[in-house]
């Protein structure tokens, strides 16, 4: 079998990078550094920020006031990164993040966005039918909860601070962080106790 054809999009990307480099707008080294930073990031960073907020009121206040400062405090380099805003879920209010214009995502603390986040389907439906989207994810909000869809259109990047699940009293930061998935940080899911712990 012959090797699969090289996608045209890759050739186009290389031409774009070459053109930007020729104009002195970006260097290969800068691109490599940015890629390395995103490679290092993962939802585990965001999960730890959330777990700490559940345990430490002062940290929670910092996280909500200035997400980028909180990330820096955790050792994440935010230089050159967009400001990070954190959206606090509370009884009666649930946040769902989408970028209808493209795929803005808090890469510094969550890493690369998943494919579905960039899909036309998610981007068009999240703003129009958020309840249908959550239902398809199997995410059931408590009765009476209002949904606030946050369309990430400009210079901020947004992460959700979910509510701490009941039944986690006395848990450590590590235990709590393990409950916080990428999907919960975007708002399509809620932190869930493992089945055996919840039994």
């Amino acid at each position: 079998m012959s090797a699969p054809a090289r996608p045209e999009s890759l050739a186009r990307l290389e031409r774009l990078v070459a053109a930007l480099a020729a104009k002195g707008l970006v260097s290969e080294a800068e691109l490599a550094a940015m890629q390395a930073r995103t490679d290092r990031a993962s939802p585990e960073i965001g999960a730890r920020m959330v777990a700490r907020a559940w345990l430490d009121p002062a940290w929670r206040a910092l996280l909500l006031a200035d997400g980028a400062a909180a990330a820096e405090r955790m050792g994440v380099s935010m230089a050159g990164a967009p400001p990070l805003g954190v959206l606090e879920n509370r009884p009666g209010l649930h946040h769902l993040v989408v970028c209808t214009l493209c795929s803005c995502y808090p890469r510094a603390v969550l890493g690369y966005p998943p494919g579905w986040y960039k899909s036309f389907e998610y981007r068009s439906r999240a703003v129009r039918d958020p309840r249908g989207v959550l239902a398809e994810w199997g995410t059931a909000l408590p009765a009476g909860t209002k949904i606030r869809v946050v369309d990430s259109t400009a210079d901020y990047r947004w992460m959700v601070l979910p509510m701490r699940p009941e039944g986690t009293e006395g848990w450590s930061e590590d235990q709590l962080a393990a409950l916080v998935t990428r999907d919960a940080l975007v708002g399509v899911a809620l932190p869930q106790l493992p089945a055996r712990a919840a039994a």
Binding site: H95, R131, K146, I147, R148, V149, V150, D151, S152
Partner: peptide, 9 residues
């Protein structure tokens, strides 16, 4: 649903 909102930059 009544009460749902959009928050946009």
């Amino acid at each position: 649903a009544e009460g749902d909102t959009l928050l946009v930059e």
